[in-house]
Lab assay of single mutants.
Amino acid sequence: GATAVSEWTEYKTADGKTYYYNNRTLESTFEKPQELK
């Protein structure tokens, strides 16, 4: 079976905060997504 690849990509803001962006739902969040835990 195919492994589900996380759609979340980790980015940093200009002031160094980490956030996560989902390229399928176009959602962004500062909290670590469930799929990455």
Rank of each mutant, 00 (worst) to 15 (best):
G1M: 13
G1S: 13
G1F: 14
G1Y: 12
A2I: 13
A2S: 12
A2P: 12
A2K: 05
A2T: 13
A2L: 14
A2D: 13
T3Q: 14
T3S: 14
T3V: 14
A4L: 13
V5Y: 11
V5A: 14
V5H: 12
S6V: 10
S6E: 11
S6M: 10
S6W: 09
S6A: 11
S6T: 10
S6R: 08
E7A: 06
E7V: 07
E7L: 06
E7Y: 07
W8Y: 02
W8Q: 00
W8G: 00
W8I: 01
W8M: 01
T9G: 07
T9H: 09
E10R: 03
E10G: 01
E10A: 09
E10M: 09
Y11H: 15
Y11G: 07
Y11Q: 09
Y11E: 07
Y11F: 12
K12W: 07
K12Y: 09
K12V: 14
K12H: 11
K12M: 11
T13N: 10
T13S: 07
T13K: 03
T13F: 03
T13W: 03
T13Y: 04
A14G: 07
A14V: 11
A14I: 10
A14P: 13
A14W: 09
A14T: 09
D15P: 00
D15A: 07
D15N: 07
D15F: 05
D15E: 10
G16I: 00
G16V: 00
K17Q: 10
K17V: 11
T18G: 02
T18K: 07
T18H: 06
T18P: 08
T18V: 12
T18E: 04
Y19E: 04
Y19I: 11
Y19A: 09
Y20Q: 00
Y21T: 09
Y21L: 10
N22E: 01
N22M: 00
N22A: 00
N22P: 01
R24K: 15
R24D: 10
R24S: 14
R24N: 14
R24H: 14
R24T: 15
R24P: 04
R24Y: 15
T25L: 03
T25A: 01
T25Y: 02
T25E: 03
L26M: 14
L26C: 08
L26D: 13
L26G: 15
E27Y: 04
E27A: 05
E27D: 04
S28Q: 11
S28V: 15
S28D: 03
T29S: 08
T29R: 06
T29V: 09
T29W: 04
F30D: 07
F30Y: 09
F30K: 04
E31Y: 06
E31W: 06
K32F: 05
K32D: 04
K32P: 06
P33E: 01
P33S: 02
P33K: 01
Q34D: 15
Q34R: 08
Q34M: 10
E35D: 10
E35Y: 06
E35K: 04
E35A: 14
L36K: 03
L36F: 13
K37D: 13
K37L: 15
